[in-house]
Simulated scan of single mutants.
Amino acid sequence: MDFHKELDARGLNCPLPILKTKKALADMVTGQVLRVIATDPGAVRDFQAFAKQTGNELLALTDENKEFVFFMKRK
């Protein structure tokens, strides 16, 4: 999947991956896609809740070798 910006949140625990994602999305324009890599297992439900609360779209979520990759589309 194509993306415009990448955020490495590996090794960070809740709530840091979401806080850094929120900051990164704020610097982007509507329609751009942010790729986030995280290792916190709690990030899966956190990103789903974040998408619902903010209106930013969670386009995809994959789990690769205990790393979670999220693609978030800026609203």
Rank of each mutant, 00 (worst) to 15 (best):
F68W: 14
P41W: 06
D63V: 14
A9L: 03
L12T: 02
D27G: 08
D46N: 14
A49F: 10
V33R: 11
F68H: 10
P17D: 07
L25N: 00
Q48F: 14
R45C: 00
L34Q: 09
M72A: 12
N65F: 15
A9W: 04
Q53I: 05
F68S: 00
L12M: 13
L34W: 02
A38P: 10
I18P: 11
D8F: 14
T39M: 04
N65V: 10
A24K: 13
D27V: 00
D40H: 08
F71I: 00
T54C: 04
M28T: 01
C14G: 00
T30F: 04
R10S: 09
Q32T: 02
P41G: 03
R45F: 10
T62F: 07
L25C: 01
D2L: 08
D2Y: 09
Q32K: 08
D40A: 09
G55E: 01
E67V: 01
G55M: 03
Q53N: 12
L34N: 09
V44W: 04
G55T: 05
K5H: 05
K23E: 11
V36S: 06
C14H: 12
L12D: 02
H4I: 03
R10W: 11
K66D: 15
L19K: 13
N13T: 12
G31K: 12
K23A: 15
F47A: 00
M28R: 02
P17K: 14
F3R: 03
G31D: 09
E67C: 14
M72W: 09
